[in-house]
């Protein structure tokens, strides 16, 4: 009698079992996909700057006030920043000087062609960090 009951219970439990293998497979696939895509994607941001060219707009020579101009250039092969005659080779020193200047009239960043993009954009970032709302990118020939 007991044996029969056990056999019936075993049969019933076999019939009621839900096969979860495929769901687990898919869940693991999803997990792996999201892990891989998370590692690959780097978080990006942006720096907004006005655009001007020296041929068309006043960037210092034709205006009444003396604008603040950061020159990004290569001096004896070293990428450097020049602001009011002072030369800096790192963006932190540039930023500390910029933060002491008046911010109302904005700042121009004149970029010479023989410097890396990363170095040039660091000047734009320094101006932003120093509190300048108006930063203008001026490409030099």
């Amino acid at each position: 009698m007991n044996r029969r009951r056990e056999a019936r219970a075993r049969r019933r439990s076999q019939r009621l079992g839900v096969n979860l293998t495929s769901m687990i497979d898919v869940t693991f696939l999803l997990l792996v996909y999201f892990m891989v895509s998370t590692v690959m994607a780097r978080q990006e941001d942006q720096l907004t700057s006005s655009l001007q060219t020296r041929d068309s707009d006043a960037t210092g020579s034709q205006v009444d006030f003396q604008p603040q101009i950061i020159e990004v250039l290569s001096i004896e092969g070293t990428p450097s920043y020049r602001l009011a005659g002072r030369v800096f080779t790192d963006d932190r020193s540039l930023e500390s000087v910029l933060s002491e200047l008046p911010h109302e009239i904005g700042v121009f960043v004149r970029v010479h062609p023989n410097v890396p993009v990363g170095f040039a954009l660091a000047a734009v970032q320094s101006a932003r960090n120093a509190g300048f709302a108006q930063v203008t990118y001026v490409p030099e020939k």
Binding site: R42, E44, L51, Y137
Partner: peptide, 13 residues
């Protein structure tokens, strides 16, 4: 005006 793309140092999505 244009926006210049930057990569947040150590930032991962």
């Amino acid at each position: 005006a244009a926006r210049m793309g930057t990569e947040i140092p150590g930032g991962l999505q």
